[in-house]
């Protein structure tokens, strides 16, 4: 059994997991420099700075950050982001056409590679475990949670920092056709129940199962097979305004985080897990189902999280 021991939502108007279900976004942009300090941020792209800030606050929430600002080197990093470096790539291609390669800046080199967020997090916090970047479409955030769980079971890391992040900019809006995009990050620490118990960490939620299937109802069917009780909440996929059939988990409260916080793309799955932790933090018990990827997408992926049963 793997458990969540720390979370943070880096969104305007949210400062802890419970806020994701109770608050509305303020109109402002979150400022990563307020968390990280300005030093060394100048040439990092928006997704990277959002990711670094969310990583810091999540490692701190899980009580894993040492006084030197570093964490256990045996920590893995799994980042999900579809659009993180889209603007850099498009802008550089345009500059080359306009000015030849004489016009490009060396500071864009690292940002031209899609794994820059995960590698910058590893460098800043000294995390030498496996370092994965998922760019897997609408399901990407839930998929990241699944690979984090696999890395633990394969004994490739003691714990995993899982992070979903998407920036908002002109390129992203044009590409996705969405008017309101997330411009934020959410992160969580996943570790084995034994590892958490050994270091006396507080378990915030248990990860019961991760599944993937061809559509939403197939995904829910697989999730229901893995859970003892009816879920108390269903965190639904982004559906572009299409309503999900009533027959799916009839009577279970549905929450669409993207409706509140903006189109979340690859960040959604992690955002959903953090919201589930917030739900348990506020005193709720039982299980939460989260699904990313609708029937209009290439697949759906889902997780079941349960409230912690302290040291049973």
């Amino acid at each position: 059994m793997n458990v969540i021991t720390g979370t943070f939502p880096m969104l305007p108007g949210a400062s802890e997991a419970t806020d994701l279900l109770t608050r509305q976004p303020t109109g402002e942009r979150v400022d990563p420099a307020a968390v990280l300090g300005r030093k060394g941020l100048r040439y990092k792209d928006r997704a990277t700075t959002l990711g670094l800030a969310a990583a810091l606050l999540t490692l701190r929430d899980a009580e894993l950050l040492g006084e030197d600002g570093r964490a256990d080197p045996a920590t893995a990093v799994v980042v999900s982001s579809n659009l993180g470096n889209l603007d850099t790539v498009c802008r550089v291609a345009r500059t080359i056409a306009d000015e030849t390669t004489r016009g490009v800046s060396p500071m864009d080199t690292a940002n031209a590679s899609s794994n820059v967020i995960a590698s910058e997090i590893a460098i800043r916090f000294g995390l030498r475990g496996p370092n994965l970047t998922l760019c897997n479409g609408p399901t990407s955030g839930v998929d990241a949670v699944r690979w984090a769980s696999l890395l633990l079971r394969a004994e490739r890391a003691d714990r995993v920092l899982v992070l979903g992040v998407e920036p908002d900019n002109e390129t992203v809006r044009a590409f996705t056709g969405k008017r309101r995009c997330l411009d934020g990050a959410a992160a969580m620490v996943l570790e084995s129940a034994e590892a958490a118990r050994e270091r006396g960490a507080r378990t915030r939620a248990e990860l019961v199962s991760c599944v993937r299937s061809s559509g939403v109802s197939e995904c829910l069917e697989l999730l229901s097979g893995n859970v003892r009780t009816r879920p108390g909440m269903w965190l639904v996929p982004e559906t572009d305004g299409e309503s999900l059939p009533e027959r799916l988990l009839t009577g279970v409260a549905r929450t669409d985080l993207s409706a509140t916080w903006g189109a979340a793309s690859g960040a959604l799955g992690v955002l959903q897990c953090v919201a589930a932790v917030g739900w348990f933090d506020s005193g709720e018990h039982g299980s939460v189902h989260a699904v990313a990827g609708s029937d209009a997408d290439d697949a759906s992926a889902g997780v079941v999280l349960e409230s912690a049963k302290e040291y049973r």
Partner: peptide, 29 residues
């Protein structure tokens, strides 16, 4: 279109595969 930035959409259409993962990890991916 955005649905083709990752490879899952094409793999689903061509092979019927639904458990697909695009991992973007630079030169060791």
């Amino acid at each position: 279109r955005a649905e083709h930035l990752h490879f899952g959409t094409a793999l689903r259409r061509r092979l019927g595969a639904a458990d697909t993962h695009t991992l973007s990890g630079a030169c060791s991916a």
